[in-house]
Amino acid sequence: MHQHDKSILTKSNVQSDVVVVNQCDTDSVEEFDFVNKYGQTKHCIFVSTTQRGLSRSRNMAVSYAPEDSICKICDDDETFADDIETKVLCAYERHPDASLIAFSMNRPDKKYGKVYPKADMHLSFSRILKTTSVEITFKKRHISDFAITFDEKMGSGTGNGGGEENKFMLDIRRAGGKLYFAPENIGTVNPAPSQWFTGYNSDMIRNYGWAAHRSMGFILGLIYSHYWVISHRHLYGNSLSMYGAYKNILGGFFEKR
C-alpha cells in the first residue's frame, strides 16, 4: 500500500516478469522493463489503484498477467529466492497436469514455524487447509478456464477475516484441477504484523465459522467447524471456553454477510 516508487521490486528481490498492485490514492497503469541481477530484461506492469481489499488486488494482478503465465502470489512482506523462476518452472515440468503447486518458504519468525514435506506430493484436503497464500503458484490459463477468482468477500480489508486462499484452492479442486506440493524453497516471509489477525478471540472464531461455511459448504463446513473447536482448544483456551468457541463459530457459520 502507498508505494511512492518502484523500490518494492528490489525489496522483494524480483527477478522475473511481475505485476505490482499498489493500493494508494490514484489510478494509473505504468509498464516498463528492468534488468535483473542475471542481466536478463524483465517486464513490470505497475498498477496504482484506489480500490481496497486483498482479494480484489490479487484478482486485479491476475487479470494483468499473460494468459500463459504461472503466477506466484506475493505480499510486500516476502523476499523471493534468486532462483525462484527456475524452481517453479522445474516443478511444473515434473507435474505438467498441475493447476496449482505450493512450495516451502523460510519463516524467520519462529511463532509461525512450519515443517514441510520432503518430497513432491498431491495436496490433500487437510493440507490445503494448512497452505497459505505465500506458498502457492498457479497456471493462469487453468484458473481462467475454471472461471475461478479470489473471493472478494474474504481476506484482509473485508472485515471477514482470512481464508481466501483456501477457498481458492478448494474451488480449483472441485473444478477438477490438480494440486501439488513441491519441497523447493522459493523465498522468505519476513516478520510483519497481520492486517486482520489479532488472536484467537471471539471475532476471529466467528469469522472462521463464516469462512468454513463459505469455503466448504454446509455439511463439510459444519463438520469441520466442530472439529476445529475440539482440536484447537490449546489456541483459544486462554480467552474462551469450549462452549464460547462453539457459540462463536456456529454463530459465524449461520451468519449472512
Results as ranks from 00 to 15, higher is better:
Cys71Leu: 13
Gly199Met: 02
Phe146Ser: 06
Thr198Pro: 00
Met60Gln: 03
Gln40Lys: 13
Glu135Phe: 03
Ala119Lys: 13
Ser57Lys: 02
Phe103Val: 04
Phe125Met: 13
Tyr227Glu: 02
Pro96Val: 07
Asn166His: 01
Ala119Phe: 10
Phe150Tyr: 09
Ile219Lys: 11
Val62Lys: 01
Lys111His: 14
Asn106Pro: 09
Asp76Asn: 07
Leu170Trp: 05
Lys256Asp: 15
Lys37Thr: 09
Ile223Met: 10
Ile249Leu: 11
Asn207Ile: 00
Thr26Met: 08
Glu184Ile: 00
Thr86His: 13
Pro191Asn: 09
Lys6Cys: 12
Glu164Ile: 03
His234Met: 11
Lys11Phe: 13
Trp196Thr: 11
Ser55Trp: 01
Ile73Arg: 08
Ile230Ala: 10
Thr131Ala: 11
Asn190Trp: 03
Arg233Cys: 11
Asn22Val: 07
Ile70Thr: 07
Tyr38Met: 09
Asp77His: 11
Ala211Tyr: 04
Asp27Leu: 10
Ala119Ile: 00
Ile128His: 01
Asp33Trp: 00
Pro66Ser: 06
Asp75Ala: 15
Gly199Asn: 05
Arg127Val: 11
Thr188Met: 06
Ile84Gln: 04
Phe150Cys: 10
Trp228Asp: 00
Val134Tyr: 09
Ile101Met: 02
Leu9His: 08
Ala192His: 15
Val35Thr: 15
Phe103Gly: 04
Leu123Lys: 04
Asp171Gln: 12
Cys74Leu: 12
Asp33Ala: 14
Pro193Glu: 09
Ser69Gln: 03
His234Phe: 08
Arg141Trp: 06
Asp151Ser: 10
Ser16Glu: 10
His213Val: 01
Gln15Ala: 12
Lys42Arg: 15
Asn207Val: 05
Gly113Leu: 04
Leu179Gly: 05
Ser126His: 12
Asp83Ala: 03
Lys72Phe: 11
Phe146Ala: 12
Asp76Cys: 03
His226Ile: 11
Asn201Thr: 05
Arg94Trp: 03
Ser63Pro: 06
Leu220Trp: 03
Gly244His: 02
Tyr116Arg: 07
Gln3Ile: 01
Tyr38Cys: 11
Phe197Thr: 07
Gly157Asn: 02
Asp27Lys: 10
Leu54Met: 15
Gln15Ser: 15
Leu179Asp: 04
Ile143Lys: 07
